[in-house]
Nucleic acid binder design. Structure first.
Lengths: 235, 235
DNA sequence: GGCGAGATTCTGATATGACAGATTGATTTT
DNA sequence: AAAATCAATCTGTCATATCAGAATCTCGCC
C-alpha cells in the first residue's frame, strides 16, 4: 500500500481515500464495502474507517443497513430528479451572483475552462474521468466567482453525490451541441444576472435528462428485488 | 434521566438528544460540550457519543479542534450571510414549485399556519421557542408542497443550522409588519410561480437582516480573541 | 507583583476485543 | 426435488483501556 500524506486524523485519511475511490468510479454503484477489509487495507483500526463510512453515508454516497452491510448507494429515479432540483436552485443562485460580482480574471478563466470542457466532451470515450474532473472544476469556478463560501460548499457536496452516477457509461450515444459550456460561460460573463440565471437553469435541466438516460438500467434493477441488498461481490 | 424511546443505535439516540438540546437553545452558542460528560449523562460509552458529535459537527452545529474541545458553533458574519444565500436559493425554488404543484389542501393549511405564526410573532417574549417551531413548520410545509424529498431535506438541514442563531434574544426590539407570513402564504397560494419566487426571495432577505441584528454581539466577540476557544463553563 | 517552566488534568483519537443481529449455506425434513 | 432448519460466518455496534496533544494550574524565579 502507498503511504499517503499524513492527515490530521486517520478517520479523515480514510474518508478522503474512500471518497476518491468512489468518485473515480473504482467502487462502482452497488459495490459492497466491508469495514474490516478496508481497515486491513489501509492499515488502521476499524474505528476510524467506521467514522469515515458513516460520514460518506450521511453525504449520500453510501447506504447501509444496521448489521447487514454497506454499499455504494444505488439511486432511485425520484432521488436523482430531486437532486437536480436542488442543484438547479444552487447553481442558478451561483450563476446570478457570478454575473453580478465575479472579477474580470475570474470571467476570463471561466471562458477558457469552458472551451477545454467542450473540447473534451466531443471525444467521449477513454478520457471520461478527465472530462468529468474538468467539468466539475468549471462548476466550482462558477461557485467561487459568486464569492460565497457556504454556497460553494453546498454546490460541491451536491456535485460529489452526482459524480457517482456520471461514472456509469450510457447505453446509446447522443450527440449534443458541442458548444454547450462555452455558450453558458459567455452568457454568465457578458449578460445580466437574470439572463445568466436562466441560462444556468436550462443547463441543469438538460443535465438531468442526460443523467436519467445514463441510469435507466439501475432504476429497473432497483424495482425488481434489490431494495434489500445481498453480500455478493465483496471489495 | 428519562428513558427515551429505544432507537436503532445508541449513536443515533445521542445524536437526536443532543440535536434537540441545541435546537431548543438549552446548549447556547459557545457552550463547551465534553464527550465524556455527555457519555456519563446518557449512560453510554464515549464512542456513540463521539459519532453523534462528529455528525453534528459535519452539519455545522458544533465546531471542534482535534484534541482541545468541542463547543456549539459561534458563527462568523460571513457564514451567516452565506447561509442565507443558500437558503434563498433553496426556498425560492421551493416557493416556485409550491405555486406550481401544491394541492388545494396544502395551500389551505399553509394559509392557516401562516396566520398562527403571525399571531405568535406579535406577542414576542416568553413563547419564543413556540413561535420558532411554528415558523419552522411553516417553511417545512412549503417545502413539502413542492413534492420533492431531497429539496425538503436540504431545506431542513439548512434551517437546523440557523435555529441556533434564532435562539439568541435581540437587543433592540423592532416592530415589523405583523402580516409578513400571511402575505407570503397568500402569494404562494394564489399567484404565479415567478411572483411566488420573488416574494420568497424578499422574505428570506428580510430574515437575514433580522438575524444579523440578533447576532451582532457575537460577531464582535469573535473578532477579539475567541477564535481559539477556552475550556471555561463546562456542560 | 508579574512571568515562565513543568507537572497535572483535561481533551479527542485510536486499538483491541467482545457482542448481537443478519446473511449464508449446508443439512435435514417433507 | 423443494422447503424448512440450524450452525457457521459475516456484518455493524459498542465498551474498555490506552495514547498523545492541548489547556490549565502550580510553583519557583525575576
Amino acid at each position: 500500500m502507498k503511504e499517503t500524506s499524513a492527515t490530521a486524523s486517520l478517520s479523515a485519511e480514510a474518508y478522503l481515500i474512500l471518497r476518491e475511490k468512489i468518485l473515480r468510479g473504482e467502487l462502482p454503484i452497488g459495490q459492497v464495502v466491508s469495514r474490516r477489509k478496508v481497515a486491513v487495507e489501509l492499515g488502521m483500526s476499524m474505528l476510524p474507517v467506521s467514522e469515515a463510512l458513516q460520514r460518506l453515508e450521511l453525504e449520500g454516497l453510501l447506504e447501509s443497513r444496521p448489521r447487514a452491510g454497506t454499499r455504494v448507494k444505488i439511486p432511485t429515479e425520484d432521488e436523482v430528479r430531486g437532486h437536480y432540483v436542488v442543484r438547479e436552485a444552487l447553481e442558478v443562485q451561483a450563476a446570478k451572483l457570478f454575473a453580478e460580482v465575479a472579477t474580470a480574471s475570474e470571467r476570463a478563466e471561466l471562458q477558457k475552462l469552458a472551451a477545454r470542457v467542450d473540447a473534451l466532451s466531443t471525444k467521449a470515450g477513454k478520457d471520461r474521468f478527465l472530462y468529468l474532473s474538468h467539468h466539475e472544476k468549471l462548476h466550482r469556478r462558477i461557485a467561487e466567482g459568486a464569492h460565497c463560501q457556504p454556497l460553494c460548499d453546498a454546490i460541491e457536496k451536491n456535485q460529489v453525490l452526482a459524480s457517482t452516477w456520471l461514472c456509469v457509461p450510457r447505453a446509446k450515444a447522443t450527440n449534443e451541441p458541442s458548444r454547450r459550456h462555452q455558450d453558458l460561460a459567455a452568457t454568465l460573463c457578458n449578460e445580466s444576472p437574470k439572463v445568466a440565471a436562466e441560462a444556468m437553469r436550462k443547463h441543469v435541466q438538460n443535465a438531468l435528462k442526460n443523467t436519467l438516460g445514463r441510469l435507466e438500467s439501475y432504476f429497473q434493477i432497483r424495482q425488481s428485488a434489490q431494495t434489500v441488498f445481498t453480500r455478493s461481490s465483496k471489495s
